[in-house]
């Protein structure tokens, strides 16, 4: 059984059919890329997994469990963490506080205990853990900085670190290297691979940057107009005529 199974997923926004009977599966331990031109429906897949909307039809199963029965906050409890295309950081919190929100569900102290100031010990432990993670990313000195004023690329790393703080099984990354230069892109790619190995993660990532997709993905799924147009090893998908055509169409449109 695959870790994540998406079957016949269909989503409509008004007249726009964002997803049209999309099916795919993600095997445990893999890094899978989800590619496609703008508006293909990639982010919509993530938002449906996050339970932000109800699909018109179809099923999503995670480790065999029907995800569509869950509320948005329960998705994380099952072990699915994500990042957002336009960053989902809390702008007025510090870097460290953002990471601690990632630990939210792991706190044991209840509301009364928190009000009475109990549970400081786990707070300290999580703080130390967050600092350790930041140090690994070379972001240690920024832990007290307010997120809103940091460079975009740095914030992308922080958001990934926050997702890791949740101790996920499956990580959904929506354009992790958008707006990054080549060096940062390479760093991010290596980091994703390293954490996958270390934490035993499965990664599903949306990305337009083909260097990242070709560099770290073991499998690629290509979408266009909400439908799957190709799936397979990265090189195969890149050579697929339907994929080339979809991207060519986009370039003509953009130009």
């Amino acid at each position: 059984m695959a870790l994540l199974e998406v079957e016949e997923l269909t989503m409509r926004f008004g007249g726009v059919k964002a997803l049209d009977g999309l099916s795919f599966a993600v095997e445990e331990g893999q890094i899978v890329g989800l590619i496609g031109p703008n508006g293909a429906g990639k982010t919509t897949v993530f938002n449906l997994i996050s339970r932000f909307y109800d699909p018109v039809g179809g099923r999503i199963r995670f480790r065999g469990e029907d995800l569509l029965r869950l509320k948005p906050h329960q998705v994380l409890e099952r072990g699915i963490a994500r990042t957002f295309q336009n960053l989902g950081l809390f702008p007025y919190m510090t870097v460290l506080e953002n990471l601690l929100v990632g630990r939210h569900i792991h706190y044991k102290a209840g509301p009364w205990a928190l009000a009475l100031g109990l549970g400081r010990r786990e707070e300290r432990a999580f703080r130390a853990e967050a600092e350790g993670l930041l140090d690994r990313l070379g972001l240690g000195p920024l832990k007290g900085a307010v997120v809103a004023f940091l460079p975009y690329g740095t914030r992308k790393f922080i958001e990934l670190a926050r997702a890791l703080m949740t101790r996920p099984k499956l990580l959904l990354l929506d354009e992790p290297v958008a707006g990054m230069n080549a060096t940062e892109t390479q760093m991010m790619g290596e980091f994703i691979k390293r954490v996958r190995d270390e934490y035993g993660l499965t990664v599903l990532l949306v990305e337009h940057d083909m260097s990242l997709v070709m560099g770290i993905c073991e499998r690629v799924i290509a979408l266009n107009f909400g439908r799957k147009i190709a799936e397979g090893a990265p090189e195969e998908v890149q050579r697929d005529p339907a994929v080339i055509e979809a991207y060519l169409g986009e370039e003509v449109r953009v130009a």
Partner: peptide, 28 residues
């Protein structure tokens, strides 16, 4: 105590980024 705890952070998280907060496991 409340403000400095995960509760205070959850309040701010929901205030500023409702979706991201939920994706972090915070129940609205």
């Amino acid at each position: 105590n409340i403000v400095d705890s995960k509760m205070g952070r959850a309040f701010i998280a929901l205030r500023d980024q409702e979706r991201a907060a939920q994706a972090c496991g915070i129940s609205l």
